[in-house]
Computed example of a mutant assay.
Amino acid sequence: MRFWIFLLAICLGADALAESVVPTRTIRANAIITEIDVVTKSGRIANGFDRALDVIGQEAKTTLYAGRPILFDDVGPPALVTRNQIVMLRFETGGLVITTEGRSLERGGIGDRVRIMNLSSRATLFGQIHADGSVHVKN
């Protein structure tokens, strides 16, 4: 019986041992988070980070305030493409590959879907940013 009471006490106390990642200072949107910017604090938030390594190197999507837990939607991969940047557009379908230049109308990181203006036709397209900084347009 004592074993079960002990086990129950351990399970209920597990949340007390859990930690949340919080900023040490105010971090502005679009800033890259470094190891001196965050610490862990006791207490757990359901949709927040519990390891500082998961946040370090990410980019703040919104302003992060000191002492408030960092939530999953508050950070993301660093932007590769900035607004008004000239990027390479790539369209592939059935063996046909078309490449041209475009102007990014939005800011984004790897895997983000952004609006792009084709500089030749002035048409607005949507594409996904790849690791090399090019934007692949889907049909």
Rank of each mutant, 00 (worst) to 15 (best):
I33F: 11
T63F: 11
P78T: 04
S20D: 00
G94K: 07
I70M: 04
V38L: 08
G76W: 03
M88Y: 03
K41R: 09
N47E: 15
A66F: 12
T62V: 13
T82Y: 06
I33H: 13
G57Y: 05
A46E: 06
E59G: 05
E92T: 04
G76P: 02
F49K: 10
R68G: 01
R44H: 10
P23Q: 11
D37A: 13
R25A: 15
L71H: 04
I70P: 00
P78M: 04
I32N: 03
L89E: 12
E19L: 01
I33E: 00
V87M: 05
V87I: 07
K41D: 02
A29H: 08
E19C: 00
V39Q: 14
D37W: 14
V38K: 03
T40D: 03
Q85S: 15
T93N: 11
P69K: 00
I33L: 09
V75Q: 10
R83H: 09
T82A: 08
L80Q: 07
P69C: 08
V39A: 14
A18L: 12
N30T: 15
K41G: 05
F49I: 07
V75E: 11
V87R: 05
N47F: 10
T62M: 06
G76V: 01
V55R: 01
T26W: 13
L17G: 02
V87T: 06
T34Y: 15
A16M: 03
D50M: 03
L96H: 08
I27P: 00
R51E: 12
G95P: 08
D54N: 12
V21G: 07
D54L: 06
N84Y: 14
N30R: 09
A60E: 14
T93F: 13
P78Y: 03
G48Q: 07
A18N: 04
V55T: 02
V75D: 07
T40I: 11
E19M: 03
T63S: 09
F72H: 05
K61T: 05
T82G: 11
D50K: 00
F91N: 02
P78S: 03
E19S: 02
P69Q: 05
R90A: 13
T93A: 13
V38E: 08
T62D: 13
V75N: 09
P69H: 00
E92L: 12
L89G: 13
F91L: 10
G94D: 11
I33P: 07
D74K: 08
R51L: 14
A52N: 05
A79R: 02
P77T: 12
P77W: 03
I70G: 02
V39L: 14
V22T: 08
L71F: 08
